[in-house]
Design a binder for these strands. Sequence first.
DNA 1: CTGTAATCTTTATGA
DNA 2: TCATAAAGATTACAG
Lengths: 219, 219
Amino acid sequence: MDGREPKEMILILRKIGCDVITQTLDVSDYILSENLAVERKKGGDFSGSLVDNRLFEQLERLKDTFKSCILIIEDFEKMFERPKMKVSSLYGAMNSIAIRLKIPIIPTRNLQDTAICLKRLAIREQINQEGHALARHAPKEMSLEERKCFILEGLFDTGPKIARILVDKFKTPYNLFKAIEKSELTYTKNGNPKGINGPLDTVKGIGFKWLEKNKKLFS
Amino acid sequence: MDGREPKEMILILRKIGCDVITQTLDVSDYILSENLAVERKKGGDFSGSLVDNRLFEQLERLKDTFKSCILIIEDFEKMFERPKMKVSSLYGAMNSIAIRLKIPIIPTRNLQDTAICLKRLAIREQINQEGHALARHAPKEMSLEERKCFILEGLFDTGPKIARILVDKFKTPYNLFKAIEKSELTYTKNGNPKGINGPLDTVKGIGFKWLEKNKKLFS
DNA sequence: CTGTAATCTTTATGA
DNA sequence: TCATAAAGATTACAG
């Protein structure tokens, strides 16, 4: 973090388990990795630096220096205390930062919150590097039947209705997979989609497209 | 704007010079152009929809529907009023929205401010025509690999990590089901759980309990 | 989304 | 080879 940031911030960050080193930074307030920097601005300063045009100058330099950066607006309601400043100018500025400069804005209530936010950002950037795994979260207290449906709802074009029909007919997911493997797509002489041949051909709700898509899961 | 938004909003917007029509909207609260939609969320609703997992579901649908979209968090400090909700969860959620989903967040103090912000956004989008500065994301479909993992995450005691291991080893869900069927639970002479015999015996992360539970899906 | 609790697998150890 | 304990990793759940 930049040495000119509040001394209290070091203490708070260390207290919540962050490793911090201070150093004079030219363009940002916090550097979380080679690629990610954070600019912290108090609400009051935001309107201040907007009037003398320092704000956008600063942010554009930030953007040129780091691959990605974030603007934290601390105590954001303070931004409106400057009486002469039009409210629409402030929102216009925020819109412009978010849309034109593409710099994400995170509002916080105070220094303490900013520290918490910085910690989360650091964890995301430095530790969680894992490619985002799509968490699927099952409603609790699921019966065996419900669990079977839940698995089948993972298939292409399969919601609760179709899943129920399939479990009723095939009893287990494994049986269904066997049925999908055995079922064949049929085509007309001209090569156009015709229908299904096999265990799945009589199932309501299952058609050519469904089978075509879900057969992909076997390759 | 969506018809379920506060009636007062129509009045405020008209008063500050916006043309507004109301209509029932499926995925967003305000549509400013073919390409730009805005979701308005009150601070309290933000934390509320976070607990029951509706928040990200909603935002992801929004992102898939419009080229660009914006999240306005109205009266943002209210989000912290749920006493048992962890502050770090809230900032983590905002970070994720801003960074992973790349949806800009604009905080406002109240309904009036939201109206002002919407007007600025409308001017930028409809009049200034500064081009579509917001990134366009190709509608993302789950890849085949992801879909296979997704299905397997329906199994008992199976999260992203285990699902990935299983897909890497067995390639397809069907192969895994065959492997489960072939694998046998083994016991010591005293009848205590010992291990696994079969294709699954060498798989890291899979043990006696896992197989025992998931064999239930075959009955 | 986070932090914690519960659960499971694996490794280590002694009999 | 088995039983038990401790350690490490992952999943489940509440807020």
